[in-house]
Design a protein around this nucleic acid. Structure first.
Lengths: 354, 354
DNA sequence: AGCTATTCCGAAACCGCTTTCGGATGCAAG
DNA sequence: CTTGCATCCGAAAGCGGTTTCGGAATAGCT
């Protein structure tokens, strides 16, 4: 039951440790015969190399870390488990390990990263949700440590990333809404230090100018990435004197909150006011009404991220690994042409205001 | 920029490596003075101990692994990211690492576990979603390796676990429904090799006998843990000649699917047929109608699991760590008294059947 | 048979840190 | 001026592998 070490194995075979080691690792200078013999004995005795020792000796960690996003109301990070799964698959191909590390509240996340890199525990890092100008990215670039970003910062130069084009997506969404006849399109956003949030407002504005609609700052409301956030923001916008006829939300969970807000105001989402979300979470099919959204092609993002990171660790040039995917508008029932202002809405607004 | 090793530090200070090491680790036989001096020099030079070397020397892994559930349609495992977060927090208190490992498709999960235990990479394991009689648990028990289970198997003896009492919960739910007047209560379940699925049917049956309702096997439908699964199963049950007036679902995502099925049949959930789910996912607040559910107190389960595992690794007796929490019925709008059979329903049923 | 070229394996150093053990030093007590 | 005890620190032996280097044995050639 005690663990068998290389030494045990060697003694058992009457060979030197070094020989056994090389046999196990398929060195060319070991005869086919002894190589076979060693391997057979190895799994007869149930030998498992001690990974820690191996790591120390080789200097390779054979592991990568996933840096958990900091703002993690589980609700806003349903993608984590999918991503980890994909990452795990990619790493498993080589028998590498996956560590997840969480910035400690006490120390800043940069310090967490520093320690991680210095510890030698992993040979690469993948991180999510970069901010507009992300100090973690700067640090990693400078250090030369292999890494890849899920998303990207404002300045996306000089490192590897995998992202979905939120800017394009929101421009598309505005196009769509405008073609439906909407002129007053509201935007529910997230704090713009998050780069994806910035991207998406940018897209929203792009779409506005492309359709000759002048930008009205009153039509934007920034809030948290939760359902309650979306609810509050929607209420805000809708209670305005000149409310929007459509709401673009920075993600689906906000959009779902917005749907509730609209219904609570006695209006019907998709008819009185259109709502479009972003992400394509499965729940969108079951909301009331089913949510029109910009769906990310995120099925295999984890796997991709993993493969790319591995290539970089192997010496690939990080800048060769920058992939931008496109989101797809999936129309369900929460969007439609604007309704002419009916007494109902006006009455309602007045009531809320007075 | 090159990494500074213990040796460098020692040379720099004119001390022996051993001394420096003991100073860093607060050995009592190092004078306060040199201890201070060493530590100051350490972070002046930016010394970070190489974790791999430390592990090899001490024999402690200072890391635990989370065994990902195998059946992971991201949709059915939204809890993973929360759990990992909690685990991470618990481990961070000691500076330990968290590894996530995924059973490889090629080899069975037992083999994955064997390798993990033998590799010495971690000093403990937490696993989720045990089956009724789980070979992983048997293996771990036999091996004496520290572990804890999120959930439990049929025979919950001799190991540590943290679970929510699904049996009790479903009995409660039946009580509730019965008190509302329901007599034909349907059950949408999951494959019963999953122990939690078994628990919940058991609870369902308990509830039935407690309320003097005779069990009708036609009122049970087993399906996958997805929204489509719930949808299909609900349709099945509802199209029967004597359809149930209420549906108990093994989890919320199925319940959400069931809601859709009911609406698609032209019935109104919560009035024509009641639906109760299990889990308490945030989405339940936004479904149509809002979903009544048995909410798990899962907020800090990860943290708890982690703390318990750590205690076991420290030598605690696993059987001292078995905690059973209770789920809470949160009433929203998807349940209500049964409606007397109206022409509408009868017509509908006939139409579907013919 | 004699010599060089291969093939295969053993010996030993090393990876970076921990920990035991004993020696040196300083100080109080005898 | 010893003897006795703490107190501190240095030396060295691991932890369990990998990898370089060189030597022995075998094979190939003339």
């Amino acid at each position: 039951m005690a663990r068998v070490s290389l030494k045990d194995l060697a003694k058992h075979l009457g060979l030197a440790e070094g020989t056994v080691s090389r046999a196990m690792n398929n060195y060319p200078d070991i005869s086919m015969a002894t190589r076979e013999k060693v391997k057979k004995a190895a799994d007869a005795l149930g030998y498992r190399p001690n990974n820690t020792a191996r790591r120390l000796a080789t200097g390779r960690a054979e592991a990568v870390a996933y840096l958990m996003p900091t703002s993690h109301s589980a609700i806003s990070t349903p993608f984590v488990s999918q991503l980890l799964q994909g990452l795990g698959d990619a790493l498993a191909m080589r028998g590498w390990d996956l560590m997840v590390v969480q910035p400690q509240a006490a120390e800043d996340e940069l310090e967490t990263l520093r320690k991680l890199v210095a510890s030698g525990k992993v040979s690469g890092v993948v991180m999510s949700r970069p901010s507009k100008s992300d100090s973690r990215i700067e640090f990693l670039k400078k250090s030369g440590f292999p890494f890849i970003v899920h998303g990207r910062s404002r300045d996306a130069e000089g490192y590897a990333w995998y992202d979905v084009d939120g800017r394009q997506a929101f421009a598309d969404a505005v196009d769509h809404l405008a073609s439906l006849g909407h002129q007053r399109i509201g935007f529910i956003g997230a704090p713009s230090y998050l780069n994806f949030a910035q991207d998406r407002v940018d897209g929203y504005k792009d779409g506005l100018v492309a359709n000759g609609i002048t930008f009205d700052p009153d039509l934007i409301s920034v809030t948290e990435l939760t359902d309650e956030g979306g609810e509050r923001a929607a209420l805000d916008l809708l209670n305005d004197t000149a409310p929007p006829s459509a709401l673009l939300c920075v993600n689906d969970v906000q959009a779902i909150g917005a749907l509730s807000a609209i219904r609570n105001k006695g209006l019907v989402p998709g008819e009185d006011v259109s709502v479009i979300g972003y992400d394509g979470v499965w729940m969108g099919r079951h909301t009331n009404p089913p949510l029109t959204t910009l769906a990310q092609p995120q099925a295999h993002s984890g796997r991709q991220l993993g493969d790319m990171l591995l290539s970089i660790i192997d010496g690939g040039n990080p800048t060769d690994f920058q992939v931008l995917r496109r989101a797809e508008l999936v129309r369900r029932k929460s969007d439609g042409p604007p309704r002419a202002l009916t007494p109902k809405i006006q009455t309602n607004s007045r009531e809320e205001i007075s």
